[in-house]
């Protein structure tokens, strides 16, 4: 057996070993996505005449979407929710990580898990906790009344802020962990050198620490963006997208159209907006990362 043959054999072996995972990806991942794209061009419905005869209707769903006020409202809501969550989670996560840096292990061991609790909890539990916390006679309002502050119907008066806060509580720990490991990787000697050269804490932060963890910030932003875009359960359980359309984000609007108004085809078309937003933002972030 010569060298070339054994190389081919090696390749073939690799391909055979990869087959199962490729197959699984195709069947459970690529196929459903393609099917979703296809359905967005049909009149698929849960009930009614259209449920009996699936028809290809071209771009009709998309034309409807452009005329639909609610689509515009929910895109706006989605972006507000995304931006609020991103800023909140990252800033808070970074501050916590920074404060926990160089602290002793006991301190980290106690504080870390407290923040992690919000993250490891399933979405349902988070929604339930936050609903009771922000509820009319919930914990926060009881604290308010203890200090003789006016009662606030958080879920109705400021619903968007409330769900953003809930999502921040849920997601901060993830950012904290990312930043923690990045900060641990910042070489101590560079920082020390800066300090010796007379840089204050603020300057060290801006000129040394942030540039060192730039890539982590970008990756973290991207991961958070994609997971926040898809948040459904949290908002659905806390406000159901309401009151009115005040917390109606794209995933909830999609669910309502598909399963409550029973227009599955239109619902899948709406999910395509999410896909587009996701892709655009991901490309944007990778561009930023590339510029180093």
């Amino acid at each position: 057996m010569n060298k070339k043959q054994s190389g081919l054999l090696e390749e073939a072996k690799k391909s055979v070993l990869l087959m199962p995972s490729v197959l699984l990806l195709l069947v459970f991942f690529v196929a459903p996505i393609l099917l979703t794209v296809y359905y967005s061009f049909t009149n698929l419905a849960l009930s009614g005449e259209n449920a009996r005869q699936l028809k290809f209707i071209g771009l009709s769903n998309y034309f409807t979407m452009f005329k639909d006020r609610t689509v515009r409202i929910s895109i706006g809501n989605t972006l507000v929710f995304l931006l609020g969550s991103l800023i909140g989670q990252q800033v808070l996560g970074f501050i916590i990580a920074l404060n926990m840096r160089n602290k002793n292990r006991v301190f980290r061991g106690i504080v870390g898990p407290i923040f992690l609790a919000g993250w490891i909890m399933p979405e349902v539990v988070v929604a339930l906790c936050c609903s009771t916390f922000f509820g009319d006679s919930g914990t926060l309002n009881q604290i308010f009344s203890f200090f003789h502050l006016p009662q606030v119907e958080f879920l109705f008066a400021i619903p968007m802020l409330t769900v953003i806060l809930a999502n921040i509580w849920h997601g901060t720990a993830f950012s904290m962990m990312n930043f923690q490991s990045a900060l641990d990787g910042v070489p101590a000697d560079i920082e020390e050198a800066a300090r010796v050269d007379g840089a204050g804490p603020f300057q060290t932060m801006i000129r040394i620490i942030l540039p060192c963890i730039k890539n982590t910030i970008a990756t973290n932003t991207m991961l958070n963006t994609l997971s926040t875009l898809g948040v459904f359960g949290l908002i659905y359980m806390m406000t159901g997208g309401g009151p009115g359309t005040k917390t109606l984000t794209l995933p909830i609007f999609m669910y309502r159209q598909a399963f409550i108004s029973q227009q599955l085809g239109y619902g899948t078309a709406i999910s395509m907006i999410l896909l587009v937003i996701g892709i655009v933002l991901s490309v944007f972030y990778t561009r930023i990362m590339r510029n180093d």
């Binding site: 459904f232 359960g233 899948t268």
Partner: peptide, 27 residues
């Protein structure tokens, strides 16, 4: 990686929506 993640987001969306009606939870 970025595009795969973006795609998986929508895939989760579809699946999530469905399971919600079959056994999911509402208020």
């Amino acid at each position: 990686l970025a595009s795969v993640m973006a795609l998986s987001l929508t895939a989760c969306q579809g699946a999530g929506g469905k399971s919600e009606t079959q056994g999911g939870s509402t208020a």
